[in-house]
Amino acid sequence: MRKLFILLAPFFVIISCSEKENKNFVFVKGGSFKNTNSSYYGKDLTISNFYIGRYEVTQKEWVEIMGSNPSEFLGENLPVENVNWYDCVKYCNTRSLKEGLEPYYTIGENKKDPYNDNGLDEIKWTVTINEGANGYRLPTEQEWEYAAGGGQMSKNYTYSGSNTINEVGYYWCNSGEKNLKGSDWNWSLLQNNNCKTKIVGSKLPNELGIFDISGNVREWCYDWHNNDTDPKGRVLKGGGWIGADYCCEINFQGNYEANGKGSDTGFRLCRGE
């Protein structure tokens, strides 16, 4: 009987998980930061429950909603890239409307945001939050880092899901034909090695079952960055195929002007509980 219970246990786990999770989203149970590598560890913060994309938004998902594909490296299951922060919040709202959800953002395309004084950003839309709306949104930096660190299931990894970047993420050394570890970063070296994005979900997931949260493409978060030495911009997390391994550590805060694009820049969806 005990053997039978053990054999049947996975059914119950699968059934109970399926209530809160689906193929593309992972339920993240909230709480305080457990991963000591997180920049938020030890701070008096409690993250609420939320859902986060199991994968980075793919080109297939982007084209279904937006119609065209901005990516440099083409493939339905490659992450969408070459999208700026404004493109991403617009995608969130457009997809929400298409799926009958309440848009999470109010986007003032004709209203310049006075807070944004970055001369390189000619877009400067004013984007505000509709608190409580059930639509898709970008994760906050705290939510992203909490999920990347494994949430309440954290095993205290440096990268999301491992202390070895090669197991969980694509960065400049392993995103091409040869492994470039041992060399110093050099753009020509990456070009020669045919480095590029990879199909989502092709490395190991983290403790919560989330893929590519370290590496592949850097992921836009909602927040403004807090680095006073860089021009005003939004936070990018997780590092991408162009950047160094340290960019893939869960606590690394990348930043970029909100209208910035690149073939290493994409995003992951999020939703409230």
Partner: peptide
């Protein structure tokens, strides 16, 4: 240099 590749990813 606006939005060019770097060791931190595409950066200005």
């Amino acid at each position: 240099r606006v939005q060019q590749p770097s060791i931190d990813g595409t950066k200005t």
